[in-house]
Design a protein around this nucleic acid. Structure first.
Length: 419
DNA sequence: TCTGGGGTCCTAGGACCC
DNA sequence: TCTGGGGTCCTAGGACCC
């Protein structure tokens, strides 16, 4: 059996842990730059605030329903996630962390366990120790555990937030209940197409011909179909190092000059380099893109990207910032209002595989230098040591007007309790 | 004025090889 | 008039996830 554990309204719940006065109240969390809604408490959902709602369009509604608004505090969410995952890892030797707020546990050899009790204990401990509410779905396959989880979340009282699909009757009943567009792996396009041929529920989907599914939804869709039928086609996945790493941002205002963009691109490249070093990889190529504001139909649009193959694999901040700025030079055009840009590094290989190039090689001195920089930044705070090509005067700021303290990761932000 | 960010996988088609 | 057969690798684009 697989268990899928999912934190309820994760970011909103993290904020509430340190603001218990907000329990039972509407809470939303905004994306970077306070752009749009990326998490909602149940009360906020009930107030009719959709996922992805642009914050400026919903200001009235926030006021009207007394919604507490937060800027995204990823330092807090990342740390809370680690705490939850560490508790969950005690409940099975086989765990796959699927996202910041979700994990699969493989429950092998649990035949003599009462899984309902087991799940409820898990839930009790996570909530007690971290303050984060979770829902649990258990079933013979991953896709079905997703379905079970949805039921647990939808009917928290009846299920005690833990639901198990362990026989055909329950499976069929669950699949007939679940709308096709809510199935894991069926997105907007697929559900539109499925709707036109009369597939309304997950159950309808499992009744389709294999060939049709294969043809229109590729092998991914076919695997999903079998998974929903109870045939295990998806196992736990090993933790693997990433294949791409990206740092991309929208700007608070429009950028018009090369110099402004150059600074951002250098900073994004440095950030990618840091992420690479963290997972002990080097990259072989890098992509730089710049976009104008796609919502401003009245302005000329210019979206372009460029891929640069590096002469040697590297994770040096200096090299990557250099290559990225060179790339930018090739695509930058005067006369546009730029709103978004990013750097994506690709072709990742382990740091240890060092291929010598006949003509050009990485500067060996960078390695110890980067090590020293990483160490200092860890010790004295992120971004303390920067390249001169970066924003040394701290001109650049993200809009984060409703940022909560870093309660769990920053000493100065620790809560004081008066007794 | 203001509309996020970071990932994965699969397929078709082109370029190339012998 | 007639123009093979069997591969690999790479990339762009489209779908999906949170």
């Amino acid at each position: 059996m697989f268990a899928l554990i999912d934190c309820n309204n994760f970011y909103a719940s993290c904020e509430r842990v340190f603001r218990p006065d907000l329990n039972g109240k509407a809470v939303v969390v905004l994306s970077n730059n306070d752009g749009c809604v990326i998490a909602r408490s149940n009360e906020a959902k009930a107030a009719g605030i959709p996922m992805g709602a642009p914050a400026f369009e919903y200001e009235q509604k926030f006021k009207q329903h007394h919604v507490q608004v937060f800027s995204a505090n990823f330092a807090l969410y990342g740390d809370m996630s680690n705490r939850v995952m560490s508790i969950l890892s005690d409940y099975s030797p086989d765990m796959e962390i699927y996202s910041i707020d979700e994990a699969f546990l493989k429950l092998k050899g649990f035949d003599f366990f009462n899984l309902q009790d087991y799940a409820e204990e898990m839930r009790y401990k996570v909530t007690k120790w971290t303050g984060i509410p979770i829902s649990i779905g258990i079933a013979p396959t991953k896709a079905l555990s997703k379905v079970a989880n949805r039921i647990a979340k939808k009917f928290p009282k009846e299920t005690k937030s833990a639901y198990i699909i362990d026989n055909e009757e329950k499976r069929i009943k669950a699949l007939k209940w679940l709308k096709i567009e809510d199935v894991w792996g069926i997105g907007r396009q697929h559900s539109k197409r499925l709707n036109t041929i009369g597939v309304k529920t997950a159950f309808d989907f499992t009744q389709l011909e294999d060939n049709w599914v294969r043809q229109h939804l590729t092998v991914v869709g076919l695997r999903l179909k079998h998974n929903l039928q109870g045939i295990p086609t998806l196992g736990l996945e090993e933790i693997q190092s990433k294949k791409n790493i990206a740092t991309t941002r929208s700007f608070e205002t429009n950028y018009t000059t090369y110099d402004q963009l150059r600074e951002r691109i250098a900073t994004f490249a440095v950030s990618c380099a840091e992420k690479l070093r963290k997972q002990q990889s080097c990259c072989n190529s890098l992509m730089v893109f710049i976009h104008t504001n796609r919502y401003r139909k009245d302005l000329p649009q210019y979206n372009i990207n460029i891929v640069i193959n590096l002469p040697f694999p590297t994770n040096s901040s200096i090299e990557l910032a250099n290559f990225a700025t060179q790339a930018l030079t090739k695509i930058f055009k005067q006369g546009f209002y730029y709103k978004r840009a990013g750097v994506i590094v690709q072709g990742l290989i382990p740091e240890t595989i060092l291929q010598q190039n006949l003509f050009e090689n990485a500067d060996e001195r960078h390695r110890p230098l980067m090590k020293a920089i990483d160490k200092m930044n860890l010790l004295y705070g992120q971004q303390k040591i920067r390249l001169a090509s970066q924003d040394t005067k701290r001109v650049w700021k993200m809009k984060q007007e409703k940022l909560s303290p870093r309660y769990t990761t920053h000493l100065a932000d620790i809560i004081t309790i008066y007794v």
